[in-house]
Design a protein around this nucleic acid. Structure first.
Lengths: 219, 219, 219, 219
DNA sequence: AATGAATGAGCCTTCATTCAT
DNA sequence: GATGAATGAAGGCTCATTCAT
């Protein structure tokens, strides 16, 4: 079963999944992502996708049995990649070696995930909007990904608590504060106020200082 | 124009808007809120709403010219009420008098808005999901509500900065950190993990301490 | 359960079922019968039916949830009416009283069912063609109607056997010979060679004499 | 023209028509027969046939220009073979020599055609169902096969009438009674109640006695 | 000969909306 | 004000058929 899990992770994280995709299939996906992100899944018609992809409507259904299939083929892999870094094998060990301080860890994660969000903004937007309406997606997230991720992060936080870098408080509570603050910046910057000219370096540094001071153990 | 604005605010904030609503109209709104929240606006059919409301299909269109009208009549007022407290006349003066410390202000706002979110969770969920897909809503928010609210909050933050309670940093940056942290808790608690048994008092206190330490001016 | 059965029969045999049917609904049925009979159910499109009925396509689906529903609403009642006379309450007693000889019975049935077939030829044609492809119809026939009918006919045949009017042979075998001969004429006359100018009286008489001689007990 | 006719008959009756058929072609025909018989021609998709036959969708159309072509290639030859015995050269002479009595003829025909029906039940079922919906098939039957067959049978019946074995009545009327009775048994046994364990020998004998007595000339 | 991706017309069905009652 | 039958445009999807490989 550990074997199985490793394979599952590997397959989930595979980034260049353009294997075996025909030219038209790629165009379909691109068009779908674009329109789903713009109008939402339910408000998008397959004929619209076909037109934008420059493909006959029937072609969509040769590659994806249903419209929902098309959505899932876009969104399900993204979900895994979103939390990918936290699923790496020996995640914690890598961390222990690499990051002397929680601050370094935070900086690495924030930069990495911000870059990811910027690069995949449209798919991410689709994912965020559709998760509440598609039980399969919710299930995949709540039953499989979330527990794994939460577990690993809690261990890391506990580690730095033990080192005396973070205030004493239930790790899950710490986790919430850290995640909200980091995700808050990424979402604001990527979706809510995309048009603002953000100085990412500065904002990230500010965010890190805010978190570090906020969670500093009392002297 | 200032007159006009006051009236607009007043009308927006009117909570008990059940005036003039017939019995059936109320049932329609209730049904619509329920189903919109569950499946999303675009995936909800008017016939479904009619059925759940126990009215004829035509009745909906007697009260709301279009399906979108129905959505707006639900969501637009909510948007104003969501930021209602920040729109109150003489908001800052009230604050100056009432809250000696930023911490008190934070506590008051967090409690108040959490209560509001819990009470209006379904409509809030609809609002959050539909804003990106309906330009009218975005316009109302970005052009009218947001500037007002941001302006008032920035003033308050500047006030406490001047008092030496908050670290020196552009007020808008401070605002972002505060808002994400507060909104983060409310959203997590109300939508993402509603089933968890949250100890609101404790979590709010934790959140406040986090913010206050995070934004403490250096000694 | 006997109660239930009686009600079921009653409802099945109700001929004038135009109750509550709107004008358009009747036109839909008429058009559907006509085209189903001409091209078969599967080869008929709902748009074709709508056009012939002078109705919008959507109207069909307001009255019949699916195309198949439309078929069943035409064909299922017909099935009961087809064997209606054999399902009458106290069928055998009526017979005993009314028909002194098997020949009289045969004559009555042949005339009655021929008239019926001529009158309902199109629906009958649909029924005959669709039964093999729709399990619901088969079930209704094989599980409910057929046993009842066969049972009653077997009793009648046994009755006339006992009276010495029919040759000794398993009643079911007798039944088969009688039914194929009678149905054979009706089907030939109504479907296979409709264009021929049949002299019904003469042919029926011939058929009856054929059956009576063919089943005469040996002297 | 007589020449032509003979060749036509010969070609129609050719039984082992597997000549020149590739392996895949045979599989296509087998699959088509199976599914056409199960769901009807119009309700069967070519992709379904391709799948069951284990060939690519395109392969079907390499051998049969259209779906209808495929149907005709199955059903048209069967039609001739169905009435094959009655089309044999010198049919009547053969009869005169071979069968002393009408009863013998009946017995031979019944056995032979029953065996044929059992062997080719699926194709026969397709033929029976599709004839009314395909003018070409109807034409072939009504214009070419039926007149020939009817003519030959009428001659035979007249022959036995002249011999005093059959009652005096228009030969076409006699034909109808005989055909209905015989076909009735075969169809019932082969399609309507296939699952019953029929004792063919007994039933055929019963059927023959029924016909012979039914058509016995008066003493 | 065989494949299977691609097509686009057409299918059944749903939908928001109208209107006579 | 309320109804619900009627609409017809549009939706997702299937189909027979073609064609480059």
């Amino acid at each position: 079963m550990a074997e199985e899990m490793e394979q599952w992770l590997a397959s989930l994280l595979r980034l260049g999944e353009a294997e075996k995709m025909t030219d038209k299939q790629i165009k379909i996906i691109q068009a779908a992502v674009e329109i789903f992100a713009e109008k939402g899944y339910a408000a998008t018609s397959t004929s619209e996708i076909a037109e934008k992809a420059g493909v006959a409507e029937g072609t969509i259904f040769r590659h994806y049995k249903t419209k929902k299939d098309l959505l899932l083929s876009i969104v399900a892999p993204m979900m895994s990649k979103l939390v990918g870094p936290f699923l790496m094998k020996d995640f914690q060990k890598v961390l222990d070696a690499e990051y002397d301080h929680f601050e370094d860890f935070l900086r690495a994660v924030l930069n990495n995930r911000l870059e990811f969000a910027v690069k995949h903004a449209p798919v991410l937007k689709i994912l965020l909007h559709e998760i509440p309406f598609h039980p399969e997606l919710q299930a995949q997230f709540k039953a499989q990904l979330f527990p794994l991720v939460a577990d690993r992060l809690v261990r890391i936080i506990s580690h730095f608590q033990a080192k005396g870098e973070l205030v004493q408080m239930p790790p899950s509570a710490l986790l919430r504060l850290v995640v909200t603050t980091c995700a808050g910046y990424i979402l604001m910057r990527t979706f809510l106020f995309r048009e603002v000219a953000w100085n990412d370096e500065e904002e990230i540094e500010r965010t890190i200082q805010f978190v570090m001071h906020g969670l500093e153990p009392p002297v």
